[in-house]
């Protein structure tokens, strides 16, 4: 992908539910290697914005460009493979860790080798967990499996919706560090939604503040959070 084109760009993106604008007129760019935190009060439209980025919901206005291409011209499955999402709850599927990690490529009929699964589990700090039943994992481990499952699709952009809000304090810090190390790898950019400004400051190099569905501020982390 050209370095002159943002990996993801929104253009006056908006969503309405009934007469209410839950996301309104949001335009921003995400460049290769960027890690953007979207923060703001509860119910301000942060998660709704994230759902528009991989088209889980349909925008009422505007659009999103992925690698310079309007996502309405892309097959939804291709879009969601390229723009992966990790949700607040991991929603692991019954079975082993390997079954979960290989799920996306498996469903598309792609070959997933043992080495690939082991490599992904190593990246998320779960080496040796291949045959574990997901029913016996802790919250932090489950969220790591969820991250590995999304990474198995080799996404270009990683969307993270409050990925640590369901975890205890120690697991929060572990998962935070893990996400930062994964996003430090070349070829991957990320957007994390968090209600916690401190977490935004710890994790991201850029911050967007959303209020009442609108983008109030965006810029380098220190600059935005100090304002």
């Amino acid at each position: 992908m050209s370095a002159l084109v943002p990996v993801l760009r929104t253009e006056r993106l908006g969503r309405k539910v009934g007469d209410l604008h839950i996301v309104k007129d949001i335009s921003f760019e995400l460049w290769a290697g960027d890690f953007l935190a979207v923060t703001g009060p509860s119910g301000s439209g942060k998660s709704s914005l994230l759902r528009l980025l991989n088209r889980l919901d349909e925008p009422a206005e505007g659009t999103v460009f992925v690698g310079g291409r309007d996502y309405r011209d892309m097959a939804p499955r291709e879009l969601r493979r390229r723009v992966g999402m990790v949700s607040q709850r991991p929603f692991l599927f019954p079975g082993t860790v390997t079954h979960n990690v290989a799920f996306g490529p498996d469903q598309r009929g792609e070959q997933v080798t043992e080495g690939l699964v082991s490599g992904l589990l190593g990246r998320v700090g779960l080496a040796g967990y291949e045959e574990r039943d997901v029913g016996h994992l802790s919250g932090g481990e489950a969220q790591r499996v969820s991250l590995a499952r999304t990474l198995a699709n080799s996404p270009e952009v990683l969307l993270l919706d409050e990925p640590t809000s369901a975890l205890d304090e120690k697991a929060v810090m572990d998962v935070e560090r893990l996400i930062c190390s994964v996003l430090a790898e070349p070829g991957l950019s990320g957007i994390v939604v968090t209600h916690d400004r401190d977490q935004a400051a710890r994790m991201a190099n850029r911050v967007m503040i959303v209020e009442r569905g609108e983008m109030a501020r965006i810029g380098p982390t220190e600059e935005v959070l100090r304002a």
């Binding site: 499955r77 969601r80 493979r81 949700s87 709850r89 929603f91 599927f93 799920f103 469903q107």
Partner: peptide, 16 residues
């Protein structure tokens, strides 16, 4: 819905 949208987010076909 959580499981369904997780699978959609992984690029799985709706029928599957």
């Amino acid at each position: 819905t959580g499981e369904v949208e997780t699978k959609l987010s992984l690029g799985v076909a709706p029928a599957a």
